[in-house]
């Protein structure tokens, strides 16, 4: 063995091929089957995609690095299920490009945050976290309320999402900007389009309390309020959730 190596280490190309070969095996064995084994991701026929406003909110969540302190993955441990709710299923992040499972809980898990608090609470919390949770160490995000949401490129966002596998329809892509506006302006004509395209259960509200203008606060709160609510697969008995078609 060492004699073989004694000869191998005299050949650059031998070393290079050896390293590539040896280093490829682990990743290949662990990752490739995740795309082919059916049971890896459960079936959830009721799963819907993010609305353009929620997707914009998700991008703000990513932009501000929220994932560095908040996980979105409830583990299969008793205390986690009791603290945060039913453990997370793979299907729940099926449309998450990329996933935001996180690796650190400086703040609590957010996988089931949706509709746990009111919109007003979220807005107050974002403007000054210590106004509602005195012990909080979260940064304040007051600027979100002052910043108008960029909607002109939302169609491109949905289009790129479709390119990576999220089933957005042509209709959804064409109306992305209008739907973003409509979801935060319940009394406007655009609001109907949102429920038509994304389902009656879609939350249409003035998330930041001001229906007249569309801010980044609207988008972020809309996203926080949908967390854990794209499908209710996790609330069903396990056997149902894992059944094959």
């Amino acid at each position: 063995m060492f004699g073989f190596h004694y000869r191998l280490e005299r050949k650059t190309i031998g070393l290079v091929l050896g390293i590539i070969g040896v280093a490829s095996i682990g990743g290949f064995v662990e990752i490739a089957p995740l795309f082919t084994i059916h049971q890896t991701v459960e079936d959830a026929p009721d799963m819907r995609v993010y609305t353009p406003l929620e997707l914009a909110g998700r991008n703000i969540y990513i932009r501000e690095g929220c994932y560095a302190c908040h996980s979105q993955m409830i583990r299969t441990l008793r205390d986690e299920v009791e603290r945060y709710g039913p453990y997370s299923l793979a299907v729940e992040s099926k449309y998450d490009h990329p996933m935001l499972w996180g690796s650190k809980r400086t703040g609590p898990d957010l996988a089931r945050l949706g509709e746990k608090y009111s919109d007003d609470w979220h807005v107050a919390h974002m403007i000054n976290p210590r106004a509602v949770v005195p012990e909080s160490v979260m940064p304040a995000y007051a600027f979100l309320e002052r910043t108008e949401l960029r909607t002109d490129d939302l169609s491109k966002h949905l289009k790129a999402q479709r390119d990576v596998g999220v089933p957005y329809t042509d209709d959804m892509i064409a109306n992305a900007a209008a739907d973003a506006y409509g979801q935060a302006a319940p009394d406007s004509p655009a609001a109907d389009g949102v429920t038509k395209r994304y389902g009656k259960a879609t939350t249409v509200r003035a998330f930041d309390g001001k229906p007249s203008d569309l801010t980044e606060m609207d988008a972020l709160v809309a996203y926080l309020q949908i967390l854990g609510r794209l499908t209710d697969a996790a609330h069903k008995p396990v056997a149902t959730a894992e059944k094959k078609p």
Partner: peptide, 23 residues
């Protein structure tokens, strides 16, 4: 996949559990 050639934003090819493992 970038959303356009004039934007910094892109979406990962992988999602959910496959993305978590790749990451």
């Amino acid at each position: 996949v970038p959303i356009s050639w004039g934007s910094a934003k892109s979406y990962s090819l992988f999602s959910g559990v496959q993305d978590a493992m790749t990451e």
